[in-house]
Amino acid sequence: MAMNNPSAGPPDDMDDREGGKERLPCGRDLAQVWQQWEEGQTDSHSRSCPHCTAALEDLDGLKHVVRQAREEEPEYEDANVLVERVMDVVQLELRPGRTLPLGTTEDDDWIVEAAAAKAFRAAADSLPGVRAGSCRIAPLNAPSGPRRRVRGPVAVRIEVVIDMTGDLQEAAERVRQRLLVTAQRALGIEVGSVDVAIVDVLDSGGHGERPGRWR
């Protein structure tokens, strides 16, 4: 295929500039010819002109080979090796984060937020139709000094998705009670407040809306 303007210059520079338009011998801009065809807009010229049709055949031929190449690709169904390798690294990572007090103000036992959150989420997940999302825990009291960790009750905020019809406020309350029980029985952490935010509601059809929050 004859071209008026053979590619010149380093490819990257040419890519980002509008200069270097390639014109077919009929005068049409090759990039435009291709683009219009892709967008389903050809005109009588591009359909009949030998240069344009040749250019379009070339592009079509390229796309055909791409389709063939796609067919040859193996199915990537099994990500087990990938998962293993990724999780091996992830599980060794440490993350900075606050620790929360276990026990009373006299005790010197602490638990990292991620571990307590995990327990709270599992508790919420155990309720039918409830799925837990974000769970944050923070001391209610301000620190007594710059280097001291804070003892005292904590505030828990958990986001949940409720999959049910019925009273959402009641569902939120059930979550709250479950968390309070978990705090006492599974952890031993003093909880001052539980904020349950219902971030999504699913009916059995799977369509959702976003309601507000219940304290």
Binding site: L82, V83, A117, R121, R131, G133, R136
Partner: peptide, 18 residues
């Protein structure tokens, strides 16, 4: 949901995403 959990350190949620 999983992303929120994973960003807070939930490794099981992250594994599901992977």
């Amino acid at each position: 949901l999983l992303t929120a959990r994973a960003s807070e350190g939930d490794e099981e949620a992250f594994e599901t995403l992977v």
